[in-house]
Nucleic acid binder design. Structure first.
Lengths: 112, 112
DNA sequence: TCTCTATATAGCAGATAAGTTATATAGAGA
DNA sequence: TCTCTATATAACTTATCTGCTATATAGAGA
């Protein structure tokens, strides 16, 4: 539910790749570490970050710690984005007003 | 298009608040700075980050620099999330298999 | 031109992040 | 029990972030 840590966790390409990998199914730490050309402790910490952000969950299976995605984390971001998207689309309704206000001719990129 | 900077930009509560504020319509730097109990230079830098992430655009109007949201930035995140969500939902289809694999009794939270 | 307002930039301090190596823990199996 | 494998933790380095203050720039208006 903490958007700070959630977005922050997603800001790292390695962590996004880990999530993408986990989207294909459960994986252990070693399995996750393999494709990343990075030491195991580094991956372990990335996983800790992802877990802290509520994006993955871990279980214990003997000496292994398989990880999988936690759908709730995705839902949290989704919710915030939906909020922003909603207000944005409401804005589109008054886009004409906005454009009317934009009379300054310079520094305009997308004026048709 | 750079997910690193986009997610990173969203990881800060002040910046998310700025975006929420901008969702209501254009605002100048001073207008944005006002509610945040933060100095103007700090806000300026936050805006620079948001602009760099492609989340806002700015124009010049005299001495003012009104900002507004850049829908494309939102779209980029949306796209990535949709990808993840899609694979996730595909995963749900084989949820039974996954649950069958999860035989270790400890550290299970969500087993019904 | 002088001055005021709006914004940007520079430079600094403290906090946080990401990677590394070395080491600890803990379960499996001989 | 001894050892191997899987993972976690600690300590350290380097880089980046965030806030601040002080200062520069640039347009508006008298």
């Amino acid at each position: 539910m903490d958007l700070d840590s959630t977005f922050s966790a997603l800001a790292d390409p390695t962590r996004r790749a880990i999530l993408a990998r986990l989207a294909l199914g459960e994986a252990t730490v070693m399995e996750l570490a393999k494709p990343f050309d990075m030491t195991q402790p580094s991956i372990s910490r990335h996983l800790k970050v992802l877990e802290g952000a509520g994006l993955i969950v871990r279980r214990a299976e003997g000496t292994k710690r398989p990880c999988r995605l936690a759908p709730d984390g995705i839902a949290a971001i989704d919710q915030w984005l939906t909020m922003l998207r909603t207000v944005l689309s409401q804005n589109y309704d008054r886009l004409d007003d906005v454009l009317a206000t934009m009379e300054a001719p310079e520094a305009q990129k997308d004026k048709p």
